[in-house]
Design a protein around this nucleic acid. Structure first.
Lengths: 154, 154
DNA sequence: AGTTTAGTTCGTTTTTAGTAAAACTAATAA
DNA sequence: TTATTAGTTTTACTAAAAACGAACTAAACT
């Protein structure tokens, strides 16, 4: 049901859960969700704190982690010493690109396993590993091609 | 440095860390790494227990979780009542395919955020969100095309 | 029937991650 | 120069996850 009149708390809560799946803590997730939804999209430390009803330290830690990842920055306005935190959409997009590309860690492990198994008599197993490597390599290639294509078009 | 003579404990430990990033517990990760490297690639409950020096319950829980995910199964040999656990490479490949496809959850969130922001004055921000959605959609499409292509060829 | 083997289940302990509280710092304002 | 604001840092607490130990079960051997 769509109303136009929404409950921001509830919405932030709901979106937060999705971000938690991306290795973010509940507070980090809600900070990010809040910044995604709030009007204006930049908010002071205290806006965030008040909205989330979280401690200063939690908010500080969350913001710093998000800023470290690059997906949040802040802007300032002259004559106002507060920082206004906001999602850095360009960086977020970049980090999504990177994340998509990165099947590498897993693939390196499988490749290494195969190397260490050179003398194995269990050929079927080794062939299975080869197939997994091949799949991942194929996909990595196609994905980076797709990303290149997209970058050119934008 | 490559020696041919490797330290299996160390190697399992190292690979384990990579699997931990995929939402697996340390014991699960090491069980999986061990099965990936061991010769033969099927091992009894006690082989695993001895190698990992973990408790029966930990090993039991880890194996059951891995079996639930489908990426581990067991085989039996007649006249031997032990089960021999091994990585199910076909299922693992399938689950990798599925995992790769799934950018959906995140994209739905961003799409929803944009919907809720229809009346925002911050057009630049909203355009940024649109761009992120477009990118993810584009990528999702290319990835599932690639997976189809690969499936046909295998 | 009794014992051993191969695991499972259940209750407890240990570890770690997340959050909070409170003291601290640096900058501005009064 | 003192007070206030805007955050940071350090330490402590809490809850949840992970691992353990021991008692238990089911099957198979004796």
């Amino acid at each position: 049901m769509k109303t136009g009149i929404i409950n921001l708390e509830q919405e932030v809560e709901k979106m937060g859960v999705v971000f938690e799946a991306f290795a973010k803590t509940p507070v980090e997730s809600r900070v990010f969700a809040f910044l995604l939804l709030s009007e204006p999209p930049h908010r002071s430390f205290n806006d965030i704190r008040d909205f989330l009803k979280a401690s200063k330290s939690s908010v500080s830690l969350a913001l710093n982690k998000l800023m470290n990842e690059g997906i949040v920055t802040y802007i300032t306005f002259s004559g106002d010493r507060k920082r206004y935190f906001q999602i850095n959409l360009d960086k977020w997009l970049l980090s999504l690109e990177e994340a998509t590309k990165d099947l590498t860690a897993l693939n390196m492990v499988v490749r290494e396993a195969l190397e260490l198994r050179v003398d194995s008599k269990h050929l079927v197993f080794n062939e299975g590993l080869e197939k997994i490597i091949a799949f991942q390599e194929f996909l990595e290639l196609r994905i980076s091609e797709a990303i290149e294509e997209w970058k050119k078009a934008h």
